[in-house]
Design a protein around this nucleic acid. Structure first.
Length: 410
DNA sequence: AACGTGCTCAACCGCCGAGAT
DNA sequence: AATCTCGGCGGTTGAGCACGT
C-alpha cells in the first residue's frame, strides 16, 4: 500500500480565493512555512477548506513575496520570446529566468498578448473554437489536419498548436529576414556566405543573461553553434544539452559536411540531407558550474548564443539561416509594429501560412517540431515521413530528426 | 440600454516522474 | 516489485470586465 489519501475532495472548496482565505494561508506559511507537505498544509489551517494543490498554486502564483504582476518589460518580453522559440512552452523554465514572474503569468502573457503580437493574428473566439475543428481552433490558421478533414478524430496525430506556432513564428521572422535584404541562401555555399556576414546572435538577450550571471564566464566566440542547455529536475522536461552543429567552421566534431561518420560518431551525429551533421541531444543533467548544481531545484537555462542560429534552433544544415533574434527584437520594439501591420503596409512580403494542400495524413507526427523552415507548402511522405518543401528548393525529410524535436531521443 | 464579442487571468484539470510504503 | 500519493508541470476553462455595435 502507498500513502494515505491526501484529502477529501468532496469537502474542499473550489473557485476563487477569498481575502480571508488568502490571509489565513499567507499568515500560516509566513509563520510556519509549508512544512514540505502541501497536502497536509490546509488541514493545519483552521477554517481553510482547500486542497493542498490549490494552496500551493495560490501561494506560488499570488501570495508569496516578490511576485511581480502587471506589464512585462521589454527585456522580459524578449527573453520570453527567445526562450519560447528555443525551448517551446516550458513555462517553468522560462519563468526561472524572470525573477518574480510565475510560469502561469508568463503562460497567460504569451497566450493573450505576445503570441498575437508576434504572429499578428487574433485568437478565434471561444464560440468559434467550440464549433471548429479542435486543431484549427488551437490558433494555427491553416494548420495541417489529417485524413482528409476528420481531424477531430485524429487530432492526436497532428502537430500541436504550440509546435506550429513556433513554425509560424519562424516563418514570420524569416520573412522579415528576407525583407531586410538578407538572402535566404540554401545550399552550403549560401549558408556559409550568410553566416560569414552575420552579426552576433541574440545580442540583447546575451547581455541580459550575462548580467544575470547565467552565462559561463568565457564563451567561444567563433563556434558556429547555438547551444541551449536546460536543466530540470523532471525527466519529463529534460532538454538538457542540445548542440546544433552544422556547417563549415563548426565544432571539431563536425569536420566535413559530407564526411562519413565513424561508427562512434554515428551515435552522436546524424547526417542531414542538405549536408552536414546534426548533433543529437545529450541527455542527462548538464551542470556547467557548482552554482548551477546548487540551484538545481530551480530550473535554469543556459544559452550560449554567440553565433548565428542556423535553421532556427535545433535544426539542421541546409535550411535557411537568419538572425531571428535580432529580427525578433526589431520586430517587437522597432518602428514597424506588429507583423500584421507590417504585412498590411507592405514592408514584409506576405508569408505563407503552413499549409497542407492535399490534406494527407501525418502518421506518427509528434508535437515537438524543432526546426522551422520557410515553406510555402508542406508535403507529407507516404510512409509516415513528413517532408517540407522549402521555398528555396531544399527539400528536407524531417521524419526522423525534426519531428519529435528534442524529445525525440529521450 | 441591451446585446454580442473579445480579452484577461486566476484557477482547475489531467498527466507524469519521483518517492514513500 | 507493486501500488499509491505528492509535487510539479503544461494545457484549458470560465467568470468578470471592457469595448463595439
Amino acid at each position: 500500500m502507498g500513502r494515505a489519501p491526501c484529502c477529501d475532495k468532496a469537502s474542499v472548496k473550489k473557485g476563487p480565493w477569498s481575502p480571508e482565505e488568502d490571509a489565513k494561508l499567507k499568515a500560516y506559511i509566513e509563520e510556519h512555512g509549508t512544512g514540505g507537505n502541501w497536502i497536509a498544509l490546509p488541514q493545519k489551517i483552521v477554517g481553510l477548506k482547500r486542497c493542498g494543490k490549490s494552496c500551493r498554486l495560490r501561494w506560488l502564483n499570488y501570495l508569496r513575496r516578490n511576485i511581480k504582476h502587471g506589464d512585462f518589460t521589454e527585456e522580459e518580453e524578449h527573453i520570453i520570446c527567445s526562450l519560447y522559440i528555443s525551448i517551446g512552452s516550458r513555462w517553468s523554465i522560462i519563468a526561472a529566468q524572470l525573477p518574480g514572474r510565475t510560469d502561469n503569468d508568463i503562460k497567460n502573457y504569451w497566450n493573450t498578448k505576445l503570441k498575437k503580437k508576434l504572429l499578428g493574428k487574433r485568437a478565434p473566439s471561444r464560440r468559434a473554437r467550440a464549433n471548429q475543428d479542435p486543431y484549427l481552433a488551437a490558433g494555427g490558421g491553416n494548420m495541417c489536419s489529417t485524413s482528409g478533414g476528420n481531424s477531430a478524430a485524429t487530432a492526436t496525430q497532428t502537430l500541436s498548436a504550440s509546435a506550429l506556432e513556433r513554425i509560424q513564428l519562424h516563418m514570420r521572422l524569416q520573412g522579415m529576414y528576407g525583407a531586410f535584404g538578407c538572402s535566404g541562401g540554401g545550399g552550403n555555399d549560401d549558408r556559409n556566405a550568410v553566416v560569414g556576414a552575420a552579426a552576433p546572435q541574440w545580442p540583447k538577450l546575451e547581455a541580459l543573461l550575462q548580467a544575470n550571471r547565467l552565462l559561463p564566464g568565457s564563451l567561444p566566440t567563433d563556434a558556429m553553434a547555438t547551444t541551449v542547455s536546460v536543466q530540470q529536475r523532471h525527466h519529463q522536461h529534460l532538454v538538457d544539452h542540445q548542440s546544433l552543429a552544422v556547417g563549415a567552421g563548426n565544432a571539431a566534431a563536425v569536420e566535413g559536411e559530407q564526411q562519413q561518420l565513424s561508427s562512434a560518431d554515428a551515435a552522436n551525429y546524424m547526417a542531414l540531407p542538405g549536408g552536414g551533421f546534426f548533433e543529437r541531444p545529450k541527455l542527462g543533467f548538464y551542470s556547467p558550474s557548482a552554482e548551477a548544481e546548487a540551484t538545481a531545484a530551480a530550473a535554469s537555462v543556459e544559452m550560449n548564443s554567440v553565433a548565428p542560429m542556423v535553421g532556427g534552433g535545433y535544426g539542421g544544415a541546409g535550411f535557411e539561416q537568419y538572425h531571428h533574434h535580432d529580427v525578433l527584437y526589431e520586430f517587437l520594439y522597432s518602428n514597424y509594429g506588429s507583423v500584421g501591420e507590417l504585412a498590411q503596409d507592405g514592408h514584409v512580403p506576405t508569408l505563407p501560412e503552413l499549409q497542407c494542400p492535399n490534406g494527407a495524413a501525418v502518421d506518427g507526427a509528434d508535437e515537438k517540431f524543432s526546426v522551422w523552415t520557410a515553406s510555402a507548402a508542406c508535403d507529407y511522405g507516404a510512409a509516415g515521413g513528413y517532408q517540407i518543401q522549402l521555398g528555396n528548393s531544399i527539400g528536407s525529410n524531417l521524419h526522423d530528426y525534426v519531428l519529435g524535436g528534442y524529445d525525440q531521443w529521450e
